[in-house]
Design a protein around this nucleic acid. Structure first.
Lengths: 331, 331
DNA sequence: CTCAGGTCTGCAAACGTTTGCATATCAGGC
DNA sequence: GCCTGATATGCAAACGTTTGCAGACCTGAG
């Protein structure tokens, strides 16, 4: 039914293989033949079947993109950027949502493996060992996780967290809470460590969590925050931070008058929330683009010869000061 | 390198075809043989190649999902729901972002056509005629557009808009503006028509636009709003509404004191914005699920026999009253 | 014991490409 | 006019499945 290479061959009075070459190695054809073929193809509306092509070449020109939660506003800009760069390189993107579940995530990699040239794991929740095992099967690139020998783009959240905490210290806060994210998140442990290290002797740090990184969890943790008596909160992401703000508000606690709140990611929400959320800007779109390029470069290297070079890119962060932070109340 | 059906056949001492049948028609095998094959497959970690399978069966078990703008918070919940239901039916989802551009959208359908069983167009920007033409090539399902003979899920935005306008009329507004969305949006024209019809003689309606449905466009249109002297605004979506609110705010115009604002979609943003945005709830996740099911049902019908039944589903909307609407100022 | 009918499994073609190899064509040097 | 060496195109196998067809085997009835 669909028009195949054979139809074009007949139309252009050449062999299939010539048609094939007209697309994949045009310079090997006599100009005259080439245009005749291309013309015939155009007339018939021929599009090569990527499926058939994949079967012989072993390259699907597809990429799998697995995220922890599509609905988390952190991801869409990244997905969008990744899709655009992939398309510019003539690749298509499979997308899959792992629902913050390591088992689903691993299963998705396996399920996709046979029809993609590589997989990008965004904010993976699976263990390093498992990632290493999976990457023997299929090229993998990582966002927000660093594993030796595997291409990855990380975000310099250590710097971000340090700046955030310094900002709070400068304002005079002595009791700070870190509202932790998911246990399996690499970013989360990076932040936690940085927070305590940076606060040093200058402030006490309470860690609350782990939490699912959404607004509801933030709401739920607000009560605990009020009990600890801290005057400032850094949250794993904007969603949690916003939940915390709502929660505190409904407890009659003023932000930033009584408690300062800082988020991470600088999603759309941060600008919209009231008070406008002070947060750490994370270049998610750049991360998406970089991940695709890193993966493609990795797959282009010759695996047989073991010449694969796992690139690594680190993206900068910066503090965006808005209205949710202020000096602690004097008491 | 990857383990194929042949390896399993050798391991289980049967012919390839038997292995194939062990997966696709297990009941046709002697139980003993079946378990022997399945066991061998498990031991070798065999996964059938969807690519090869697609070549013979003509079914890829993939769906293309094309949206106008991934970063628009209207879409992620829909994508998420679509991906989950697709997966539950053993399908994978290609995602593509058309950047609000009809030409790109059409090109994406063509590009994807050869490796999917069908395409879902969300908020298509292409003309009906073009959609009809494309759907001869490949099964298409529509979200937020209705075309004869093509499965679609629409959202009862007519009801939503009517209720929104009545709400404004009830509050006593006499001069209302509709901040229009993209020209090619079907939803947009539905709303515009409903707004003027509902306002009837009770209020004057000014239409502002068309606009790209994002915050910046809303911001830009605020000035024009203040010039028209309207006391209430309905916007094509939450993004525009929020932009409008910001814009009005920076012009020193109070919402809802001076001007009431209503959005559409009830995205996360609506709850977060200050004042909290009155808006029309749209069940996006349901739409995603329904679209996948409609499409699969449509592709399952036998095209040769012309027995395809294009299902149509309409989803209800409702008004969510928050803080951005109030009676007009008495002057 | 034979044979019909059913159940199970092997055989090989087909799906739409790509690609190494073989063949045909051609230009140019002698 | 013949040979050499490109250059251009055809040929056919291969990629990993599925599936219609056919052969092998078995059961039970006559």
């Amino acid at each position: 039914m669909a028009v195949t290479i054979k139809d074009v061959a007949r139309e252009a009075q050449v062999h299939m293989s010539t048609v094939s070459r007209a697309f994949s190695m045009p310079h090997r054809l006599r100009p005259e033949t080439r245009t005749r073929v291309l013309e015939a193809a155009r007339r018939l509306g021929y599009r090569p079947s990527r499926v058939a092509r994949a079967l012989t070449t072993g390259r699907t020109h597809n990429i799998g993109f697995i995220v922890a939660d599509i609905a988390n506003p952190f991801f869409p800009p990244m997905i969008k950027a990744a899709e655009h760069t992939a398309r510019a390189r003539d690749y298509h993107l499979f997308i899959a949502d792992a629902s913050e579940d390591p088992a689903i995530e691993a299963e998705l990699v396996d399920a996709l493996a046979k029809q993609v040239d590589g997989v990008i794991l965004c904010g993976p929740r699976i263990a390093n060992a498992k990632i290493e095992r999976l990457s023997q099967t299929i090229p993998i690139a990582l966002v927000n996780r660093k594993v030796d020998g595997i291409p990855s783009v990380t975000i310099d959240v250590v710097h971000g967290a340090r700046v955030a905490i310094r900002h709070l210290l400068d304002l005079g806060h002595k009791k700070i809470a870190y509202v932790s994210g998911p246990r399996q998140s690499w970013t989360n442990s990076q932040i936690r460590r940085t927070v305590t290290a940076t606060a040093g002797g200058q402030a006490t740090v309470t860690v609350l969590g782990p939490n699912t990184p959404n607004e509801d969890a933030g709401l739920a943790v607000a009560e605990e925050i009020s009990r600890t008596g801290v005057t400032a909160v850094l949250a794993y992401n904007d969603l949690l931070a916003i939940g915390v703000m709502e929660g505190l508000h409904s407890l009659g606690i003023d932000v930033p008058g009584d408690v300062s709140v800082i988020g991470i990611d600088d999603t759309v929400l941060a600008r919209l929330a009231r008070p406008r959320l002070t947060t750490i800007l994370v270049p998610t779109a750049d991360a998406g683009t970089a991940a695709v390029d890193l993966l493609l470069q990795y797959t282009a290297d010759d695996a047989e010869l073991g010449t694969r070079s796992a690139g690594h890119i680190s993206l900068p962060t910066k503090l965006v000061t808005r209205d949710s932070t202020a000096p602690p109340p004097r008491s």
